[in-house]
Design a protein around this nucleic acid. Structure first.
Lengths: 319, 319
DNA sequence: TTGTATGCGTTATCAA
DNA sequence: TTGATAACGCATACAA
């Protein structure tokens, strides 16, 4: 492996001059530039980027923390981040955590050690406190409502969104409403539960714990949900389903089992994935790719910003 | 940012001693070790990993090249790679290429520059020649049949697989058989086309170009396929669909449009995703997560191996 | 058991 | 326009 020193020797110039032509800096005569370029070609030289990083103190790499890279929600978010990263000549380091705090820590550790310049946390299991302790090591941006914290964020107001969806169902005459969610913890989930409680209180409806079904992530979870519901003495008449995948699974199950939608069960999905359009599922449109783009831009920006993303209820055939 | 030198000064020892306690090397007295540890704590010290990389010439990072991270096939593969990487204390750098050669080059460049130790190419657009030129810079492993090349590989024999599926359909009486695929180029696609031609020849069936439908990746592409087919004068009676997602889209479309499956149209999907089970789709099981694991292990291994993965046809209701 | 000195490959500073 | 030389932060051969 030839290095910059070798090149200097071969081209009969100083390492500085070599570095200059390598980085397109001015102040180098055409003659010497040619000599260096020739040496580069002859030796099949390549920069050792680690040395560059060490010297510059930056890596042009960003960590992306997410629980499941095979879930449409996160893979779309990731797509948005990845596309923007590419445009800006950044590389991504992926941390697929399965919501294990230890794996989230790895990203923060890399930030500490300066192997990545910033971290985008799409979703987390760790305490905020843990995250906060790493704020001094580099930029951290999150995908949840954190307007009072010292971080940038791109987020959906899930409280507002949930309330809107619930009121929509209520206006259609549904009162026994449940919802399906990925997990019960997490700030976004808590916001939704809060909205759910407030809604129930407002309309004097009774809060039914079993109407909240968690662990709903993939298409196949739709079947699970339906089996649970069919085992209930007083099953819900409508469901908010925080992933179109799961909504599609539910709709498919209902089709196969002759459960009429929306008459027997109304469904509102989330994300507005293509599958929702195809299966005519009423859903909440969330611009995930745009959010990814925003997250990336915040990750490389000097400023601290909080970007609330607007959603839209798309009425189709399931509610 | 305090460094190893500062620590040495504070703890009143040499940098070597500091390095020793940092890396748990022997030969350091308890007394000095304590002093160093105290200094580390007091200063909130962190290693600069870039310096470590430069010094060691390794990064414990592996590049993963794939076209679409939001496609179930690749996200499952990625999941398998990611899980194994975690176990082995490796980090992944993701290259989502959209099949742009330029983006694949970025991974190879990083290999050249020693920012990653190896590259896993899940699928590629670049010429093999281009890849080959980078073989000297680090390990490259691929996910296609490359047994005669100088690389490790984990692959499915798509020729054999396709032939098996085609014969299966033939044995059920289908003769007008088409197939849906992501793209027509790529060695895996070519192997399948070859199998298709050979099959057609063997049984004296006429090769119909329009029976090969490409650009089939996602659920929503199922609708596109069906519209194409319905526009044909002599539509196929059976389809091999190289992604369960697309197969599910087709099946859903057929349900909605009262096309009987498998009577009017038989479907065989690929991958055996959960959606295939739920929708009762006959499919070819491919152990994607296991393949991901294998790819990773090959990427970090000294040896060169070629690992053919076995598939299995799972008969359900669509063929 | 400890420390000195050097190498890793670049970039940046400053003098010429 | 050029080049010596000092960072950058760590690991390690070698000497003590």
């Amino acid at each position: 492996m030839t290095n910059i020193k070798d090149l200097a020797k071969i081209a009969r110039v100083s390492v500085t001059t070599v570095s200059r032509v390598l980085n397109n800096h001015p102040y180098v005569s055409e003659e010497k530039r040619m000599a260096v370029l020739k040496a580069i070609k002859d030796t099949n030289y390549n920069k050792n980027i680690n040395a560059v990083h060490l010297s510059k103190g930056k890596t042009l790499m960003i960590g992306v923390v997410l629980p499941y890279s095979d879930h449409p929600y996160f893979s779309l978010l990731l797509k948005g981040i990845a596309n923007e990263a590419l445009k800006n000549n950044y590389k991504l380091v992926l941390f697929q955590t399965d919501y294990l705090e230890q794996r989230e820590m790895e990203a923060l550790e890399m930030l500490k050690q300066k192997q990545i310049d910033s971290v985008i946390i799409c979703s987390r299991a760790s305490d905020w406190k843990t995250i906060e302790e790493h704020l001094s090591f580099g930029k951290i941006v999150v995908c949840e409502n954190m307007t009072e914290r010292h971080v940038s964020s791109t987020y959906v107001d899930h409280y507002k969104t949930f309330l809107e969806a619930l009121e929509f169902l209520f206006s259609k005459g549904y009162e026994k409403i449940g919802y399906c969610i990925g997990r019960k913890t997490g700030s976004n989930s808590l916001a939704r539960e809060c909205a759910y409680r407030d809604f129930m209180n407002k309309h004097n409806l009774s809060y039914t714990a079993e109407y909240i079904i968690d662990d709903c992530l993939y298409f196949e979870d739709g079947e699970k949900v339906m089996k649970k519901i069919r085992g209930m003495v007083e099953p819900p008449e409508a469901l908010l389903v925080t992933s179109d995948q799961v909504a599609a699974g539910i709709v498919t199950y209902c089709h196969n089992n002759h459960i009429a939608i929306p008459d027997e069960l109304a469904i509102i999905g989330f994300d507005n994935e293509p599958i929702a359009k195809l299966m005519n599922i009423t859903t909440i449109h969330i611009p995930l790719e745009d959010m990814g783009k925003s997250l990336f831009l915040q990750a490389v920006s000097k400023e601290r910003t909080n970007n609330e993303v607007m959603i839209k209820l798309i009425e189709r055939g399931t509610a």
